[in-house]
Nucleic acid binder design. Sequence first.
DNA 1: TATTGACTTGGAGTCAACTCCAAGAGTTAT
DNA 2: ATAACTCTTGGAGTTGACTCCAAGTCAATA
Lengths: 125, 125
Amino acid sequence: MTIKEVSEKYNISQDALRYYERVGMIPPVTRTSGGIRNYQEEDIRWLDLAMCMRSAGLPVEVMIEYLRLFRQGDSTIPARLQLLTDQRKALLAQRKHIDEMLDRLNYKIARYEIAVETGKLTWEQ
Amino acid sequence: MTIKEVSEKYNISQDALRYYERVGMIPPVTRTSGGIRNYQEEDIRWLDLAMCMRSAGLPVEVMIEYLRLFRQGDSTIPARLQLLTDQRKALLAQRKHIDEMLDRLNYKIARYEIAVETGKLTWEQ
DNA sequence: TATTGACTTGGAGTCAACTCCAAGAGTTAT
DNA sequence: ATAACTCTTGGAGTTGACTCCAAGTCAATA
């Protein structure tokens, strides 16, 4: 798969794909003899993990560190486990923030829906 | 409440507090006769809403727009309702991303926990 | 083989959301 | 009233995550 195909299939810019590789968020992508990126299944698997982390809001830096540890081999398994549990904790906290805001939004929306009928809103920010 | 007290109580920097006010994410804060910020209950309520939005990851720009509409009065109630439902949609999408990553993390962590016992990990990124 | 279009790199630019700084004014304790 | 501290503003600087650009190389088609 060329960078263009990957970019279109996974809806991510070519620049972002090159950036992820450059900063070490994914391993160096397989190339053709001419030096052109030719994504293989394994490249895609790394990319998929990286995109999943990013779309959940985890920092690029975390994925870089995970990959760095991974490439050092089995001795870093405990460190990787630690990293993963830290990130799980962070995501659970973030989800809690989102749920708090959702509660607030639901309350507001309910009141605004009534207000749209009546044209007036009683003490609400 | 002075800016320092608010900063400490709500664990947010004084600079961020001034920034929120400057960009219009919260209304101008009540001042003493000398021009020093003196947060009242209502100032705190706006701040609380703003901080809740930010910690859920909603953009500053959205809160600015909400406040702008709010200050124009009841005629903007439908627009505010629209804004709120848009943000709810965005948060639900974001929560879905987080849940996907959490599933993935839980799977990985389970495998890594086993690997920590045995010292080896079988095909895993 | 020449052209066209997609690809390459290194580096600069952008954007959001703060964060820091300097110079000066307000407030409190002695 | 003087020191010591906290506050003010405007504006510059920083960080993270891309995004854009220029100059050049590679590949497919006429």
